[in-house]
């Protein structure tokens, strides 16, 4: 089912707000709404679910205007951030709940069979008789998903699906959710503030700031071509240097980089730690290494320029650098935005 948001506005008395958001999610697509807290991403998700109603604008499910359809009749599966499992019901009863209350009456045996099938899908066979308090966080997450899938939703909505889990479980569940999505092909929209999660999981990432969409595209597009300093900074570690643009080139503290299309004047140059390199001699930004942090994949080096700017560099594990070394930071690539 294709979802379309058309100029949707929702203003709260608090800081949260959604200001004129238009968005299309293709049928079968897996889309991430990514943004810092207060960017309106959860509100958008709740409006798509029907848990919140837009002040203006429309939400379409396929060709149908779903703006005023209450959540009960909207046919969405919603997975809550803290799962919202019914604590007094067993795992199997939780999963069966949607079928039990459905207007479409089902045979008890049919419901039981479907619960079993779903338990297998989320790899929780044999845990049907447990209560939510008796299973782990990752298992609860999967029960919540099974419960949402039980009502055969047209759209699956997940609010910070892995927010409350620790890093290892997160990564595993992420891969697993992607598999489930590939198997079932349900149009899925999920909210996260974790860029890694959005980039790992989604077909398309929608980046929000202060209730506006600032950029959307495939993970590759948003990573390679961030359209603003905000997106650049939000997607990952970034160093910032003040730069001057003259004749299509940006000059920053001894480094020069192409900045075609930018007007002359002040600008900000952003580079990821991996975009920077270190040269003991030669040209570049003169700097002194103030700290070296060793990580499994390489060495994170903090170099301080003569202006006192700290730059973070990712170097290969073999590079012999120690704090106190003098040398030059060179740019492999960088993004320049008008200041």
């Amino acid at each position: 089912m294709k979802i379309r948001l058309d100029h949707v506005v929702k203003i709260f008395e608090t800081f949260r707000a959604v200001k004129d958001v238009s968005l299309e999610v293709e049928s079968g697509e897996l889309v991430a709404l990514l943004g810092p807290s207060g960017s309106g991403k959860t509100t958008i998700l709740r409006m798509v679910a029907g848990l919140e109603f837009a002040d203006s604008g429309n939400i379409y499910f396929g060709d149908q205007d779903a703006t005023d359809i209450p959540v009960r009749d909207r046919g969405v599966g919603f997975v809550f951030q803290h799962y919202a499992l019914f604590p007094h019901m067993t795992v199997a009863e939780n999963i069966a709940f949607g079928m039990d209350v459905s207007k479409v009456k089902r045979e008890k045996a049919a419901i039981r069979a479907r619960v079993k099938e779903l338990l297998r899908l989320v790899r929780l066979e044999g845990l049907g008789d447990r209560f939510p308090a008796q299973i782990s966080g990752g298992q609860r997450q999967r029960v919540a998903l099974a419960r949402a899938l039980a009502v055969d939703p047209k759209v699956l909505l997940l609010d910070e699906p892995f927010g409350a889990l620790d890093a290892n479980v997160r990564r595993e569940l992420r891969r697993w959710l992607r598999e489930i999505h590939t198997t079932l092909g349900i149009t899925t929209l999920f909210v996260t503030h974790d860029q890694e999660e959005a980039l790992d999981l989604a077909d398309r990432v929608v980046i929000l700031k202060d209730g506006h969409i600032v950029q959307q595209g495939t993970p590759e597009a948003v990573c390679r071509d961030p359209k603003s300093a905000f997106v650049m900074k939000f997607l990952g570690d970034a160093n910032m240097l003040a730069a001057d643009v003259r004749d299509g080139k940006a000059y920053a503290d001894g480094a020069v980089i192409d900045a075609a299309g930018l007007a002359d004047g002040k600008a900000e140059l952003y580079a990821r730690p991996g975009d920077l390199d270190w040269a003991p001699q030669g040209a570049g930004i003169a700097a002194t290494i103030s700290r070296v942090m060793d990580r499994p994949g390489g060495r994170r080096v903090i170099a301080t320029t003569r202006d006192g700017v700290h730059l973070e560099l990712d170097l290969e594990p073999e590079r012999a650098v120690t704090s106190g070394d003098n040398g030059f930071v060179t740019l492999r690539r960088a993004k320049v935005f008008a200041a």
């Binding site: 679910a49 009960r72 919603f78 809550f80 803290h82 709940f97 209350v101 459905s102 419960r147």
Partner: peptide
């Protein structure tokens, strides 16, 4: 309100 919201989203009156 999570539990109630979950129940209504699953179609409960």
């Amino acid at each position: 309100r999570d539990l109630e919201e979950a129940a209504t989203s699953l179609g409960a009156s």
